[in-house]
């Protein structure tokens, strides 16, 4: 699938950067002790700028690299790969053009990723993910909630915050990239307005 023929040169060089931005963005959130992950920004940026296939590769690479430090994250890689597709889709629909759209994107993406993460967390790990969200899950389950609703509530609350902030960052970054660079990328046409 990957060779220099179907990907432009710039796309190939943007993939490692997307992966690194994901990882470093996550590290930065930990460093600033923020209660969110912020580890999918690179996937969305590359997905939006270069198309779904590079986005999926960034999601896959980032998932594998995160799994090195905690292999239990491996099943969630599939969600990261989906973010690449979503980034491309949102770019095509012109959803990166205004600030209020970033919030809408955040809500939509958070809902989709929660729907995919809940089955993994609930079935595989019994609601336990090893992060702060596990406290909410166990508290709710102690109060008599089932595994699925408890996991859903805790995941949705963290995902909403995480994805809305992520999408705002993605919006601001995409807006700030100079047009002379964007025009060389496969999805550049969705970000530039034609001058008449």
């Amino acid at each position: 699938m990957i060779n220099s023929k179907n990907f432009t040169k710039l796309t190939i060089f943007l993939i490692p950067i997307g992966i690194a931005v994901n990882v470093v963005g996550g590290q930065l959130a930990v460093l600033l002790k923020l209660p969110v992950f912020l580890d999918a920004i690179g996937t969305f940026v590359v997905g939006a700028l270069c198309g779904w296939a590079p986005g999926v590769i960034v999601g896959l690479g980032c998932g594998l690299i995160n799994a090195i430090s905690l292999p239990t994250l491996l099943p969630y890689t599939i969600i990261g790969m989906l973010f690449g597709v979503l980034g491309n889709f949102l770019a095509k629909k012109g959803m990166f053009s205004a600030f209020w759209k970033a919030i809408v994107n955040g809500l939509g993406v958070a809902f989709i990723s929660t729907c995919m993460a809940v089955p993994i967390t609930a079935i595989l790990y019994g609601g336990f993910v090893g992060t702060g969200a596990s406290v909410i899950v166990t508290t709710l389950m102690t109060a008599g909630w089932g595994v699925l609703p408890a996991t859903f509530v805790s995941e949705l609350s963290t995902e909403l915050m995480d994805k809305i902030i992520s999408m705002i960052v993605v919006f601001l970054v995409l807006k700030a990239i100079p047009a002379r660079f964007v025009v060389k990328l496969p999805n550049g046409k969705y970000f530039l307005k034609e001058e008449k």
Binding site: K9, L10, I12, F13, L14, I17, A20, V21, V24, G25, L28, A29, L32, K33, L34, P35, L38, I41, G42, V45, I165, V169, L172, V173, A176, I177, P178, F181, K184
Partner: peptide, 30 residues
Amino acid sequence: VFQRAKAYLPVIGPLILNAISSTEEKSIAM
């Protein structure tokens, strides 16, 4: 939390933009 969250954007923004703009030079060099 809010003060720390406000510090996130001024760090990640320049970081990503810098990295992205360096790809062009890198592709010529490679």
